[in-house]
Nucleic acid binder design. Structure first.
Length: 488
RNA sequence: GGGCCGUUAGCUCAGGUGGCAGAGCACCUGAUUUUUAAUCAGGGGGUCGCAGGUUCGAAUCCUGCACGGCCCA
């Protein structure tokens, strides 16, 4: 009989003895961390704790075991003549030896005491089975190492790898902290559609679906930009949203088709105000999580100090190329792209060439948080033309450890110019499959009613938590990454 | 899409040149009232990712496929 069958048999045996292996409720007085923190003050007071039985050492008439709850592990001691099964008067020593298994969820009622070796322990008076576990836990010493298993069965990873449990909690706390930061800065969080009839606000291949009730094709959002801007038109002045965006593209260490994005827009701001907000946010998070002045990521380190260095897109690229990319013949850019080992350069539209060249020659090498400013106009159809140079737009991207972490504009609010930019973009359709399916006329109508001048930003939350907590692969910051179905 | 690497017990991993499939943890039986990777004695557990091929004989060599990882596109 294998372990699974063995444990299943125990369920029936327990029920026959009147012990329910899946009862409804248990009254806790303390979590493990509270029990340990309040230990001295507790004196001889009765406590009750619950958690998963994760280790057990049997000495005949005495058993030491550890239970694990969300806050940590604590030792419990079950002594013959002192501990009873549940609410009965039956001695619990044999129950704890034979009926319980490592992996079961149990509750204990008992009193604090310190062992010979000084460990804070619960002397058990009553022990309750709260949920029988049927499967053996992964190895107690090495935990669950296999990456595939950790992704496919994240619950096991969380159960046995404390690092993993801590990280995902921190991710959640970071997102709460980001929300708090924006709210404290006067922003209101709104919810905009995930299903959109026209995908826009970014360049990306969308996921498509069909709504029977509307008899129409819909797309999962690649961005929420055009909806948040409608809210500015409607009269809200500072808006943001943290949501999933979907891009039907490749998966690698830095890209995943379903990712978490923050977008925020502030009326009467320009991109310099957004830069200031971005710096403050990043510094705030680093301080909140006590990460020090130097971030470590994937074997590299970066000093994070205000103000972040600021470089100009065109100047930085021109320096690497030896010529100005804006004036250069396209052939010259193709040649440079080949030299930089960018594949498929011949077929690339000009804007893409410049984008790829920038990443390869400049962006990938920006380790410390750096603002790259004032991009060529063609790359940025939603940004306002630069107030000093009409070939550029007012835009910045924040690069950290070679990754693009944020993207912000002085938002284009001139409806005539916006229409021209969309039309220019539509001419690229066919050349570039990431161009939107059609012009969002309703968005243009909204702009025609007047949108205040505004600064806007998008921040990749997955990447942000990657650098904040030094997790160098995006799958390691996602709880349940998609994998192909496993066959045998 | 291309290159390289991996897949062996529930988990962590060994298994030169082809020759009876192993260890530790976990599990089962017994002993054990201060252990904490408890200890001692004994025991059970395998479609070696899947499918073919070569061979007297394949976990091992070859081919294809699946899944995963890393790098490139």
């Amino acid at each position: 009989m294998d372990e699974f069958e063995n444990r299943k048999a125990k369920i029936e045996a327990l029920r026959e003895r009147g012990i329910e292996p899946y009862p409804y409720r248990f009254e806790l007085t303390h979590h493990v961390s509270e029990f340990k923190e309040q230990f001295e003050a507790l004196g001889d007071k009765q406590v009750s704790l619950a958690g998963r039985l994760v280790a057990r050492r049997i000495f005949g008439k005495l058993i030491f075991a550890h239970i694990q709850d969300e806050t940590g592990r604590v030792q419990i001691a079950i002594q013959k003549g002192h501990a009873k099964i549940g609410d009965t008067e039956e001695d619990a020593i044999k129950f704890a030896k034979k009926d319980l298994d490592i992996g079961d969820i149990i509750g204990v009622v008992g009193r604090p005491f310190v062992t010979k070796t000084g460990e804070k322990t619960v002397a058990v008076e009553r022990i309750y089975l709260l949920a029988k576990g049927l499967r053996p836990l992964p190895e107690k010493w090495h935990g669950l190492r296999d990456r595939e298993a950790r992704y496919r069965q994240r619950y096991l990873d969380l159960m046995v790898n404390p690092d993993s449990r801590e990280f995902f909690k921190n991710r959640a706390l970071a997102i709460s902290e980001i929300r708090k930061f924006f709210v404290e800065n006067g922003f209101i969080e709104f919810e905009t559609p995930t299903l959109q009839p026209i995908y826009g606000g970014a360049y990306a291949k969308p996921f498509e679906t069909f709504a029977h009730a509307l008899n129409s094709k819909l797309y999962l959002r690649i961005s929420d930009e055009l909806y948040l801007k409608r809210l500015l038109v409607g009269g809200y002045e500072r808006v943001f949203e943290i949501c999933k965006d979907f891009r039907n593209e490749g998966i690698d260490r830095f890209h995943y088709p379903e990712f978490t994005m923050l977008e925020a827009y502030a009326a009467y701001w320009d991109y310099t105000d957004m830069m200031d907000l971005t710096e403050r946010l990043l510094i705030h998070l680093i301080e909140h999580f006590d990460r020090g002045e130097t971030l470590e990521f994937d074997g590299q380190s970066a000093e994070v100090k205000r103000p972040f260095p600021r470089i100009k897109f065109v100047d930085a690229l021109a320096e690497k190329l030896g010529f100005n990319p804006l004036d250069a013949e396209t052939e010259r850019l193709v040649e440079a792209a080949k030299k930089a080992e960018i594949n498929g350069a011949e077929k690339m539209p000009r804007h893409k060439l410049i984008d790829k060249l920038f990443d390869a020659l400049v962006g990938d090498h920006l380790i410390e948080p750096t603002f790259v400013m004032d991009h060529p106009r063609i790359l940025s159809p939603l940004a306002k033309v630069h107030r000093e140079d009409p070939r550029l737009v007012e835009r910045f991207e924040l690069y950290v450890f070679g990754m693009e972490l944020a993207n912000a504009f002085s938002e284009l609010n001139d409806p005539i110019d916006q229409r021209k930019r969309f039309e220019a973009l539509m001419e690229l359709r066919g050349q570039d499959e990431e161009v939107p399916n059609e012009i969002d006329e309703d968005f243009l109508t909204a702009l025609e009613y007047g949108m205040p001048p505004a600064g806007g930003i998008g921040i990749g939350i997955d990447r942000l938590v990657m650098i904040l907590f030094n997790r160098p692969a995006i799958r390691d910051v996602l709880l349940f990454p998609q994998l192909r179905p496993k066959t045998d």
